[in-house]
């Protein structure tokens, strides 16, 4: 089963989303800020990253940029998650290198669709 890295600073959101994904059968690892997210992504063996954008230490855009610049994590799919439902945010996320984008609150079915689509491409 696919391994998901969830980078999310809000504890409730992290807890809720991770549990729901686990219930759907995914393996979920969690990071609480951007720096930890980047470190974990480099060292671990993940199939996809769900990246919140408003993060402490380094934010989601910067973290994405770093991952996409590094050769070993360049191919790792990243879905940006943000509460900023602004058109500009989507562009900003895609510019930073995100492969897709979804808004919070999470519509689980929609998010699962996006995850499967990216996993399907990468395999």
């Amino acid at each position: 089963m696919a391994k998901i890295l969830l980078v999310e600073d809000n504890e409730m959101n992290r807890d809720m989303l991770s549990r729901r994904l686990i219930r759907k059968g995914y393996e979920v690892a969690m990071a609480v800020d951007g720096r930890e997210g980047v470190d974990m992504a480099r060292s671990g063996d993940y199939d996809i990253v769900l990246m919140d954008m408003s993060l402490p230490e380094i934010d989601g855009w910067e973290a994405t940029r770093r991952l996409k610049q590094a050769a070993e994590t360049k191919a790792l799919p990243i879905i940006a998650l943000t509460a900023h439902a602004m058109a500009g945010d989507r562009d900003k996320a895609l510019e930073a290198g995100c492969d897709d984008y979804d808004t919070k609150p999470i519509d689980l079915q929609r998010l699962l669709g996006k995850i499967e689509a990216l996993l399907g491409q990468s395999t």
């Binding site: 409730m12 959101n13 809720m16 729901r20 219930r23 509460a83 609150p105 999470i106």
Partner: peptide
């Protein structure tokens, strides 16, 4: 924006617990 963050939790947890 501030309202949506707690609302995420309400919606998400209720959906999850319901399942």
């Amino acid at each position: 924006h501030e309202l949506r963050t707690p609302l995420n939790a309400i919606i998400g947890y209720s959906e999850m617990v319901q399942e």
